[in-house]
């Protein structure tokens, strides 16, 4: 199923042959990235889809609020944080309907958050983090458990937006994340990259002395081993508390 053909069927918009590229605001986010490269192929290769197909975006009606343990460990521990372990996993009706479509359509991408910064990843990617991750060594397997976006070519599962009322909470609060039982994302630590030696010359006024400050930064390199969106059967098998509503 192609996103803009569904949209065209849903909105009954007729593209003239001269304007093969649909306007970008009509495309889902994934298609916006590649529309210049692939839009012509979409038009020629693919048959029209019936309009009864589900929409490409799957909103979660009730995002799980971010709860932080009182004494959160600063260092990466070897155990997952018990963010959602106590709460039952609630799947809404639309999610039950559309999650099989999403999980069946590979490959998946994920917007995983490491220290609150988002990284758009898919399987096989090499990610050079903008920092040196301490406490890990090459060969270790990390599991990313905070994500705000899961998607495939036609489907997107988003965490809801933050609806905080207090003014200071907007600045300091954590973004909303998807439940970490819905997906599995594994990355392997490949090694440590290093940037170039940067030498900065510091001077002060009315003095001939120059201070040379040298800095060389190191960056952890990760490779994405697996991005998997779990299906309904797997969730029913794995989760002890599952509420279907």
């Amino acid at each position: 199923m192609r996103p803009h053909s569904v949209l065209r069927a849903a909105l009954d918009i007729r593209w003239t042959p001269s304007s093969q590229i649909p306007p970008t605001f009509l495309l889902p986010w994934r298609a916006q990235l590649h529309q210049s490269a692939h839009s012509h192929q979409f038009q020629t290769e693919l048959p029209a889809q019936p309009s009864s197909q589900p929409p490409p975006s799957i909103p979660i009606p009730s995002p799980i609020p971010s709860t932080r343990p009182a004494a959160a460990p600063a260092s990466p521990s070897s155990m997952p944080l018990p963010r959602s372990s106590g709460k039952p996993l609630v799947l809404s009706k639309s999610l039950q309907q559309l999650l099989p479509h999403l999980s069946a359509q590979k490959p998946h991408y994920i917007s995983a958050h490491i220290h609150r910064f988002p990284y758009l990843l898919t399987q096989g990617d090499t990610l050079r983090l903008p920092f040196h991750m301490h406490g890990v060594s090459p060969g270790d397997v990390l599991r990313l458990n905070r994500a705000s976006l899961l998607g495939s070519r036609d489907y997107t599962l988003k965490a809801g937006t933050n609806s905080t009322e207090n003014y200071d909470g907007k600045r300091t609060g954590e973004p909303n994340y998807l439940d970490d039982r819905l997906f599995e994302c594994r990355v392997r630590v490949v090694g440590v990259d290093s940037g170039p030696m940067v030498e900065e010359i510091k001077t002060k006024r009315r003095q001939r002395k120059e201070k040379h400050v040298r800095s060389k930064h190191r960056y952890t390199v990760l490779r994405v081993m697996e991005v998997k969106v779990k299906g309904l059967e797997e969730l029913e098998r794995g989760a002890e508390q599952l509420i279907l509503q």
């Binding site: 944080l81 609150r116 990390l142 458990n145 905070r146 207090n166 300091t172």
Partner: peptide
């Protein structure tokens, strides 16, 4: 905001510390 109990300075700081977002599943070897 009206809250139930006052937080210590350390707890207020910990609200701002972001979630790591990962854990080590398997060490090498």
């Amino acid at each position: 905001r009206e809250v139930e109990r006052p937080l210590t300075k350390q707890e207020v700081h910990m609200e701002r510390v972001p979630d790591p977002g990962f854990y080590i599943e398997r060490r090498l070897g």
